[in-house]
């Protein structure tokens, strides 16, 4: 029983990371019906830039926690920039010529390039990321939990909440929502939908970079950390529904916990299987996702 509780708790942590990455997919899918197939690499490069920044700040005799907090705005800005570049190079023209294959291949290509450059800059080995919080686990009831794991859950929720609030309350956010509802109509109302799409990509990569530095202290960072995370987030986005915020969190938790249970009770080698199985299952039973709304195409 204790083991089960322990597995569930660490499943929640992983699940929240998946949810944040999937949140990034959702942001761009809403505005342009496209998504970044290199999202995992956006997370990876965010984490690595974060690593360099935090090491630099620690080198200036700052404490780990304050260095970590100072680093956050840096990598978020970096994520915004990186996402805009992806949109500019990979997506904009494909949307203009209405080529689905175009943006899929272009974002994959950019992902490959980013990963290759990261390998050349930071090397191929996994690197240790300094943890801003104490690494000793806390004993809460039957489960042992690292402070950083709590920070991951809180941080992930805060980020999604902040972006949602921004979208709902600010005028810029309303432009995003309007574009998401009807790109053509929004364009006719004077909204520059092109820059809204760019902005959604910027936000999406920012979320990924943030997820990267959240997860980095409890795992290791390295050029190959992104690919699998990006894939799992695909599964989460489809399981929860590409249009539902709650769906993402629930989907993330379902996947994170199932993976942990599979890993423990069956074999750690098969840990990645439930993602695909759940994905296919949800697509067969409820193609719009557990929480997604089925859209009616108008003729």
């Amino acid at each position: 029983m204790d083991i089960l509780a322990q597995l569930v708790v660490s499943g929640i942590t992983v699940g929240m990371i998946y949810a944040v990455i999937a949140f990034g997919y959702q942001l761009t899918f809403a505005t342009s019906e496209t998504l970044n197939f290199g999202q995992g690499e956006a997370l990876m490069v965010g984490a690595l830039v974060g690593l360099t920044t935090i090491n630099f700040l620690i080198g200036l005799n700052l404490g780990t926690l304050s260095a970590y907090l100072l680093m956050l705005p840096v990598i978020m800005a970096f994520g915004l920039l990186q996402g805009s570049i992806v949109e500019f190079l990979g997506v904009r023209k494909a949307i203009a010529i209405k080529s689905e294959a175009g943006w899929i291949m272009a974002t994959i290509a950019i992902g490959i390039i980013i990963k290759n450059l990261a390998e050349n800059i930071w090397g191929r080995d996994a690197l240790k990321f300094p943890s801003p919080l104490a690494e000793a686990s806390l004993q809460i009831g039957p489960v042992r939990i690292q402070p950083m794991e709590i920070a991951i859950v809180v941080g992930a929720l805060l980020l999604m909440l902040a972006v949602e609030l921004f979208n709902r309350r600010s005028i810029y956010g309303k432009a995003v929502v309007a574009t998401a509802n009807d790109r053509d109509a929004a364009g006719l109302m004077g909204i520059n939908t092109k820059s809204v799409i760019t902005f959604s990509y910027a936000l999406s990569s920012m979320a990924a970079a943030f997820a990267g530095v959240l997860v980095a202290p409890i795992t290791l960072t390295g050029a190959s950390m992104g690919a699998v995370l990006g894939l799992k987030a695909f599964a989460v986005a489809i399981i929860g529904g590409l249009s539902s915020g709650i769906g993402l969190i629930v989907g993330g938790l379902i996947l994170g916990i199932t993976e942990n249970l599979t890993g423990y009770y069956i074999s750690s080698g098969y840990k990645d299987v439930p993602g695909l199985v759940l994905l296919l299952l949800v697509l067969s039973l409820k193609p719009s996702g557990l929480f997604g709304k089925a859209t009616i195409k108008k003729v």
Binding site: E33, T34, L35, F37, E100, I104, A227, V228, L231, F234, A235, A237, I238, L242, S267, G269, Y270, D272, V273, G275, L276, L279, L280, L281, L283, S284, P287, S288
Partner: peptide, 30 residues
């Protein structure tokens, strides 16, 4: 793969096949 993924329009087949590709490689290993 195709029976569930092609029920919906959009990039679903690409997403599903990408996940499939990675997982098959892991499974062959395991």
């Amino acid at each position: 793969l195709a029976l569930p993924a092609l029920q919906v329009t959009g990039p679903y087949l690409a997403m599903v096949t990408l996940a499939f590709g990675t997982i098959v490689q892991i499974l062959i290993n395991e």
